[in-house]
């Protein structure tokens, strides 16, 4: 077992561009669920819309990248408006199911053979990251984080991503401290009370949906920039559910919740995964792996991290709903 590599790789995973994508998507979800109390189960749909609004115009129609980035925001807001006008009139449990349905409609359409000419179907789209490579100020050979090599492009995504994340997190922090943010919380706590004070609850919910959705779409962009490929399989419903795990882990309705939650979540997942990978590995010189093959082998060790993630979500909600750093008064779980 190469513990140095395992640890450095797990640490890198917790702060990488991929982690930043999760942090952004979860921050968006935190605006919906944590602050406004909207049970949005379709956050993966926002991320997918963001990712494909970048990749389709650039790799299919050669748009300049600032236009594509603009489209990312516009289409996220459009999806929020569509979702809002259709579902915000519904009860919370209906809202959950309709948002899942809409996210799946988006993913299935992106996956469809019918639209391969546009979306690339199951194989997805590549070749939309050259603008980011051109902007990269770091040398191509990159740096070493202990035993983990980070290439120049990933380092650039990491640094620029953290700057972007800080800007977004600060904006969310300021927004939630403003009178506008206080109205959102009052809607979460008691919608009828907010309405009786003359607040237009529907409009506030719609604005929350738009802002959180746009942040989620930017998260989707970072996800596909890191992978250098946008594939519909990345935007399945589990992506949304892991975002819930993340914000509950880090503390609901806290700005740093999604950031800390992502770091813990991805560190644990990656640590479990890569340790098992090492423990089940066989080499020609050493044909017996560390763990017996009747228990676990090369073909099925990868499932263990998802078991951990799933049962961890259930256990967290039962035993520590305020997360690790959360405030119990801000649980936001009693969404009606």
């Amino acid at each position: 077992m190469n513990w140095g590599l395992i640890l450095s790789n797990s640490v890198y995973t917790a702060i990488s561009a991929n982690a930043i994508a999760y942090m952004l998507v979860a921050t968006g979800l935190n605006v919906h669920f944590g602050y406004t109390g909207l049970l949005n189960f379709g956050q993966a749909g926002f991320a997918a819309i963001g990712a494909y609004s970048l990749s389709i115009p650039i790799s299919r129609f050669n748009w300049p990248w600032p236009c594509a980035v603009l489209l990312v925001i516009v289409s996220a807001v459009a999806l929020a408006l569509l979702l809002g006008f259709t579902t915000l009139r519904l009860r919370a449990d209906y809202l959950a199911i309709v948002t899942i349905a809409v996210a799946e409609i988006i993913r299935l359409s992106l996956n469809s053979v019918r639209f391969t000419w546009l979306t690339g179907g199951n194989d997805g789209l590549q070749g939309f990251t050259s603008f980011m490579e051109k902007l990269n100020p770091f040398p191509q050979q990159g740096i070493w984080l202990w035993k983990q090599k980070i290439d120049g492009y990933r380092l650039w995504l990491l640094v620029s991503g953290w700057v972007l994340l800080m800007v977004v997190a600060t904006l969310v922090y300021l927004l939630m401290r403003s009178p506008w943010g206080r109205v959102l919380r009052s809607i979460r706590e008691d919608e009828d009370a907010a309405r009786s004070l003359g607040k237009n609850v529907f409009a506030y919910k719609l604005q929350s949906l738009m802002i959180g959705g746009a942040i989620g779409a930017i998260g989707g962009v970072w996800l596909v920039l890191d992978k250098q490929s946008s594939q519909p399989g990345d935007f399945a419903t589990t992506f949304t559910f892991f975002s819930y795990t993340i914000i509950i882990l880090g503390g609901v309705a806290r700005v740093k919740g999604p950031v800390i939650g992502t770091m813990i979540f991805l560190f644990v997942i990656q640590f479990v995964d890569i340790s098992l990978q090492q423990a089940t590995k066989t080499t020609p010189s050493d044909p017996t792996p560390l763990l017996p093959t009747w228990l676990i082998d090369q073909n099925n060790y990868a499932q263990l991290r998802f078991m951990v993630a799933g049962f961890a979500l259930a256990a967290l909600v039962v035993f520590r709903p305020q997360g690790i750093f959360g405030d119990k008064r801000e649980q936001a779980f009693d969404v009606h």
Binding site: N300, F306, A314, V318, D334
Partner: peptide
């Protein structure tokens, strides 16, 4: 007296975990 939303999220966690237990053993 856990809230219904919490219970819904618990059921999601149980579902994901169990599903991958199936994948682990069944292939």
């Amino acid at each position: 007296s856990t809230s219904l939303t919490s219970m819904m999220i618990v059921s999601i966690g149980m579902a994901i975990g169990t599903r991958y237990v199936y994948l682990f053993f069944f292939g």
